[in-house]
């Protein structure tokens, strides 16, 4: 333990992080997760911290178009990736159809899981378009990934909502998926 002091010094790296089409030159502590970099360094607080361990989905963002939990993603590994957060879903001032559908279906209450639900839904719809199965698809022996409500429920189960807005979330996503 005599070298503890040395070991406690943060290790930093310079990198460029691309978020919602904007490149941010930053110096990161190697320990920083994407979630903390977004929230604490770039003031992009849309992605939420609900558990910090990949167990709730509130921090979901898209990395190169794929949904991931940003709380388990080290920022330092993302130098050549494109990140999309909830702040980047709209087309200029026009909200993404999912954002509009969430408001109309009241698919949110406290709103804290909502950015993660939205990013997850965007990623999920892309997965379905690519023909990816879920366990509902695979259990049924089907290769057709038609997004009925059971499929949406299973595919969105990585995003917990404690307010219990699930039925409205599913309705909102189903409407956009159609």
């Amino acid at each position: 333990m005599n070298d503890d002091e040395d070991l406690s010094a943060p290790v930093t790296m310079e990198m460029r992080l691309s978020v919602n089409g904007i490149g941010y030159p930053i110096t990161v502590d190697t320990r920083e997760t994407l979630l903390d970099t977004l929230r604490e360094r770039l003031d992009l607080t849309g992605a939420k911290k609900g558990c910090d361990h990949g167990q709730c989905g509130a921090c979901t963002v898209l990395v190169d178009g794929r949904r991931v939990t940003s709380c388990l993603t080290l920022t330092v590994a993302l130098d050549d990736r494109e990140i999309t957060t909830v702040e980047g879903l709209a087309d200029g001032s026009v909200p993404h159809p999912l954002q509009t559908a969430f408001v109309r279906h009241d698919a949110l209450q406290c709103g804290y899981c909502t950015p993660g639900q939205l990013c997850s839904a965007v990623g999920m719809l892309a997965e379905a378009r690519a023909g990816w199965p879920s366990i509902v698809t695979a259990d049924g022996g089907s290769v057709d990934a038609r997004l009925d409500e059971a499929e949406i429920r299973e595919r969105m189960s990585g995003n917990l909502c404690r307010c219990g807005a699930y039925v409205n979330i599913v309705a909102a996503i189903a409407e956009v998926a159609r």
Binding site: T69, A138, G158
Partner: peptide, 15 residues
């Protein structure tokens, strides 16, 4: 395929 799809969540499986 079923084992993989039974595990974790869509986000975690992507990672």
């Amino acid at each position: 395929a079923q084992a993989l799809l039974s595990g974790a969540s869509g986000q975690i499986r992507n990672m």
